[in-house]
């Protein structure tokens, strides 16, 4: 009897093989949208420092139909990130704290916090200008 262990190579498209892997890759892909959107916001800040005209140009870009589609896609991916982030967060906390506060309490507090912050930002932004 001779040993001849067979090592299976990792397929190039391994992430297509299971629903759990596909979901993971979509979750990770959210970062591409957030990276581009972050760069977009950086460009906006830059244009803001360049004066009213430059700022108006950046705002016009935001209203471009393709940009609105991209914003919608980014929002969807961001919400996926938000939900998965909150789902994972309690499990990263020190075990000592996890034993004191149930995971669901932490998740509820985070979702509540996100709702409050979102409402506050939209409210704060909208109010002064109405």
């Amino acid at each position: 009897m001779s040993r001849r262990p067979y090592v299976r190579p990792m397929p190039a498209n391994w992430f297509m093989s299971k629903p759990a892997y596909r979901f993971y890759m979509v979750r990770e892909a959210s970062c591409v949208f957030n990276l581009v959107y972050g760069l977009n916001l950086f460009a906006g800040l830059w244009q803001l420092t360049n004066g009213a005209e430059a700022w108006a140009g950046w705002l016009a870009l935001q209203a471009h139909p393709l940009m609105i589609v991209f914003a919608l896609a980014t929002l969807a991916m961001t919400l996926l990130h938000t939900v998965t982030f909150v789902e994972m967060a309690p499990r990263v906390m020190p075990q000592q704290i996890r034993k004191m506060i149930p995971d669901n309490t932490v998740k509820a507090a985070m979702f509540g916090g996100i709702a409050v912050v979102t409402a506050a930002i939209i409210g704060f932004t909208a109010m002064g200008a109405m």
Binding site: A20, M88, V92, M93, P94
Partner: peptide, 27 residues
């Protein structure tokens, strides 16, 4: 580890190794 989390899903004893690993990243 990139917190795929599938390890904890398939664990027959609910060990949740993904949590153990990520608690150690925080530490």
């Amino acid at each position: 580890c990139t917190f795929v989390g599938y390890c904890s899903e398939v664990c027959p004893k609910n060990v949740d190794p993904a949590a153990a690993i990520n608690q150690n990243k925080a530490q």
